[in-house]
Design a protein around this nucleic acid. Structure first.
Length: 556
RNA sequence: GCCCUCGUAGCUCAGGGGAUAGAGCAACCGCCUCCUAAGCGGUAGGUCGCAGGUUCGAAUCCUGCCGAGGGCGCCA
């Protein structure tokens, strides 16, 4: 029995109890909470529903719990239902009903954990979007790992996700980037406010190699060549490192294209016509305060040039015109002021502000010798995506960055990276998968029929009666709920934390129970029941790691 | 000054209305003639920043304060 089936069972029993007493069944919560108590004495599962509704319907919590327990007692698949504490009902499943879950995982395979509560919602997920003026640094790397995982998680819960990267390839920032390239190519010092890292001179040489004679062109033409070629080379480098990191995008959107196509002018005209803009102090302002922003925003500067936000407005309009129901932006904490502005933009465009959802993640800090290291392109202390991957590999890097809530700032310890340490929890999880894969290999070598790919109907899963077996089954059973919750809250780290729990439950089981026959022993029904359980565990670990974009190795 | 996030074991962090607050790492003591010891068991380690409030019940929700980080441009 799955946890959700159990929850349904509890809810209908509770409804019957209330109805039998002529009480309002509407007092019941939509989703009854059935959770796994941390104390095993409190049963396999426990529900607090009696505590939640007793007051509403005017009953003592324990009295209601008592009635609920009586109604549940004797239900098919339940071994016991007992009242405890202030009004909890503790439940124990019959072993065969519990083992049924293993069969479901075998049948569902890679689809175990999927759901459809998003029902085809078209989601635009924009993340990383680092400026194309340099390589992806650690902050961007965090979003690459978390955003990619979120995309996978939303997808398996029924959303149709488009992953998008917004290149800010217009404006003064790019001008400085180009000027820095030109200076480097000419062997000059980088300009004030320019970029001076080693990658700049390498890029500059590449431009010269690709376009010989560029330095002899008149300044205007020369800069144009550096702009076009330099940006293109930088793009390629960024795309390549993201791809190598396992993060691919459906759309790389160029801010420049919004200006070139006239989309910016068009949307600004539209806003003027609809009275969303006003003219003051020589500039055009958006009335964003009317839509909850802190202050009105300049969208056309007094020199006539569009402000940065103008591109954002046109970009959102573009996303909506492409049919997205929900536009998610993943931004760093230094952009939290964007929330109000982007939502106001949606409102100004005549949209529901809720089509815009901004996820703010805290910063990634560098630590060395216990002290924070300030990242600086000039000082050469920028750590890039490649640096991280070189130090620990893609799997460890992705896992490490995805296992923390984005609400908490992450400290990356440079010394630890240099040590190439094996202290990362990713190994704990991957090792569980490798052990499980190894079990299936060994079973095959013993000539046992494979469990994977069958529906397990020939196997007596009621034999899984050891406490460690029950723990493992129930932990596996939590997976769909965890994925759903991660999708709902946009919190991929829940997957990683769950996997650590699952790996732990497996390692404990493995330690306590022998799976394969030893020596001259024959395979028994228990052998097959355990092999099925192990295959269900392996499948679940593999599905979870896939959501994080981390490999599930068969050997380590 | 205003806004956002955080403050939980020595360290890094989960848990975000439920029962005796958890994991990894670090420390200490045990466990491989046997399916992968990158594992398992045990010991030790806590005023969940502080003070009020809401509730049958608060680490969790609300208010204030303290501390840390990040924002508050006609920059992008």
């Amino acid at each position: 029995m799955t946890p959700s089936a159990l929850a349904d069972l509890v809810r209908s029993a509770a409804a019957e109890v209330l109805a039998a007493r002529g009480l309002d069944t509407g007092a019941l919560p939509e989703a009854v909470i059935v959770e796994r108590p941390r104390n095993p004495e409190h049963g396999d599962y426990a529900t607090n529903v009696a505590l939640q509704v007793a007051k509403k319907v005017g009953l003592a919590p324990r009295e209601l719990a008592e009635a609920l327990a009586n109604a549940l007692a004797g239900t098919d698949g339940l071994d016991s239902a007992e009242v405890a504490g202030p009004g909890f009902v503790n439940l124990r499943l019959a072993t065969d009903a519990q083992g049924e879950l293993v069969r479901q995982v075998l049948v569902q395979g890679a689809a175990y954990g999927c759901g459809d509560e998003f029902g085809g919602l078209a989601v635009n997920l924009e993340f990383v979007s680092a400026n194309p003026t340099g390589p992806i640094h650690l902050g961007g790397t965090r979003w690459a790992a978390v955003g990619d995982a979120l995309g996978r998680i939303l997808t398996v819960r029924g959303a149709v996700v488009t992953r998008e990267y917004y290149f800010n390839d217009a404006g003064a920032q790019i001008d400085r980037f180009v000027a820095s390239l030109v200076a480097a190519a000419r062997g000059a010092e980088p300009p004030e406010d320019g970029y001076g890292g080693a990658y700049i001179s390498e890029l500059a040489s590449e431009v010269v190699r690709a376009e010989p004679g560029v330095l002899e062109l008149p300044d205007g033409q020369r800069d144009e060549v550096f702009r076009r070629t330099g940006i293109e080379l930088m793009f390629e480098q960024i795309k390549r490192s993201l791809h190598d990191f396992g993060t691919d995008f459906d759309v790389f959107f160029h801010e420049d294209s919004l200006h070139a196509s006239g989309a910016v002018d068009e949307v600004l005209e539209q806003l003027k016509r609809s009275g969303r803009l006003y003219h003051a102090d020589g500039a055009w302002w958006m009335r964003s305060t009317e839509f909850g922003d802190d202050k009105d925003r300049v969208v056309i500067k007094s020199d006539g040039a569009p402000a940065y936000i103008a591109g954002d407005i046109a970009y959102l309009a573009d996303k909506r015109s492409r049919g997205f129901d929900l536009c998610i932006y993943m931004l760093g904490a230094d952009h939290h002021g964007y929330i109000g502005r982007l939502k106001a933009t949606a409102a100004a465009l005549g949209d529901d502000p809720d089509v815009v959802e901004v996820l703010i993640g805290q910063m990634v800090n560098l630590v060395s010798e216990g002290k924070p290291v300030r990242m600086s392109k000039r000082a050469g202390t920028v750590v890039t995506l490649e640096d991280l991957v070189d130090a620990v590999g893609v799997d460890a890097a992705r896992y490490e960055l995805a296992r923390y809530s984005v609400d908490s700032a992450v400290d990356v310890d440079l010394d630890l990276l240099r040590k190439n340490t094996a202290e990362n929890p990713v190994f704990y999880v991957q090792y569980a998968h490798a052990r499980l894969a190894s079990l299936q290999r060994n079973a095959a070598e013993l000539g046992l029929p494979p469990v994977a790919g069958t529906d397990g109907s020939q196997i007596d899963l009621g034999l899984l009666s050891h406490p460690r077996e029950g723990d493992l089954v129930r932990t596996i059973g939590e997976f769909p709920k965890v994925v759903a919750r991660a999708a709902e809250l946009r919190e991929p780290h829940r997957i990683a934390r769950y996997l650590e729990e699952l790996a732990s439950a497996y390692h404990k089981f493995y330690d306590a129970a022998r799976v394969l026959p030893q020596g001259d022993e024959e395979a028994t029904p228990t052998t097959f029941a355990r092999l099925a359980l192990c295959e269900a565990a392996r499948q679940t670990v593999a599905n979870g790691l896939a959501l994080l974009g981390v490999s599930a190795p068969d050997r380590m």
